[in-house]
Amino acid sequence: MHSIILRTATVFLKYLLLVFSVYLLLGGHNEPGGGFVGGLVAASAFILFAIAYNVEEARKRLRIEPAVLIGIGLLTALFSGLIPVILNKSFLTGVWFHGHSEIFGDIHIGSPLFFDVGVYLVVLGVTVKIIFSLLEEV
């Protein structure tokens, strides 16, 4: 679509959507949100780019092939399931690391976060792949 207004707005909206998707991803454990919604919002940023410019431009901005993203996401989810196996617990048990630092305060990092990151990448890859294929047909 050749619209200067849309193209200029897209440049700013893309960062807004990406930052908000990461916020949804990280806040997902205790509040509404999570990997799935975050991935959808992140995918919408690239879909907006594909509509405002074209699919090739959006692919260039994504940098990684969607199929590769799906693979990385699945491997991350598998990795998060294998961490408790190393610690002699059953597969996919939630393992939490509690630490304290001067700058960030209390830090709680668990394997569910890595699982959510995996879901995020898979959803981003699948959605972008489907929509790009559909847009290329038009």
Partner: peptide, 9 residues
């Protein structure tokens, strides 16, 4: 954010 995307699409 997304209703804007829907209208644009």
């Amino acid at each position: 954010l997304l209703m804007f995307l829907g209208t644009v699409a």
